[in-house]
Design a protein around this nucleic acid. Structure first.
Lengths: 106, 106
DNA sequence: CTTTAAAATCGTAATATACAAATATAAAAA
DNA sequence: TTTTTATATTTGTATATTACGATTTTAAAG
């Protein structure tokens, strides 16, 4: 009876969130921002990518509500603003985790 | 303090995993399979998509090690085979993972 | 006002992805 | 064997994503 009866439509929003995270540069940025908020120039220097490329990745993350930036003079300082993403990253990167259900599968 | 000093390369594998999940149909399939293993025909009927389309999505999930199928006669029965993905889905869907859950969520 | 620094946006070529029809394969049934 | 059922793979094509230089915007400083 209850198979994959879920409505595909219900997953569109979540798929959008994952899609925004599903790029090595963006994952790296998010993981970095989880440890320290940071402006674009620093990110650019660390990743050794053109400014416009970094800015576009930030724009994608921002448009999905994953990060937000606040202006500080001429810089813009980014931080992770999404609690769900924080949790996902914890699981994904294995940092700070407590996984492993009661019945170990090993 | 330390910035985004992480190596982008380290995130490629994880990005691949997320990319495989980052599609509404595939999310729906994975979430469905977390509750019940299922063959392709059932999935196809539930999603009302052409067989080839479903098969291609399954193929992507399989190639990333997210699901695995075992043959049962002429059918192939799929299940979620990746513990990390189970954890991610728990966070993402807000469900506390339970086998069963009778037609509750209408 | 003009200049400078930081960041965003635009234009576009290269690449990747999604989809469905057609075709292929594998196992069971006849 | 031949046929049938279930699933996989191939193929063509439309659409989306990505990367990056060039340009533009924004805000502070002179």
């Amino acid at each position: 009876m209850n198979i994959v009866q879920n409505n595909v439509h219900d997953y569109e929003e979540k798929a959008e969130l994952l899609k925004a995270l599903a790029h090595p540069v963006r994952l790296c940025i998010v993981d970095g921002l989880l440890q320290n908020e940071c402006n674009v120039t620093k990110i650019r220097e660390c990743l050794e990518l053109p400014q416009s490329t970094v800015s576009q990745h930030l724009s994608i993350l921002k448009s999905r509500g994953i990060i937000k930036g606040r202006r500080r003079g001429t810089e813009i300082c980014y931080t992770v603003s999404n609690e769900l993403v924080r949790e996902l990253m914890k699981i994904l990167t294995g940092k700070n985790v407590h996984i492993q259900g009661p019945e170990g599968k090993k």
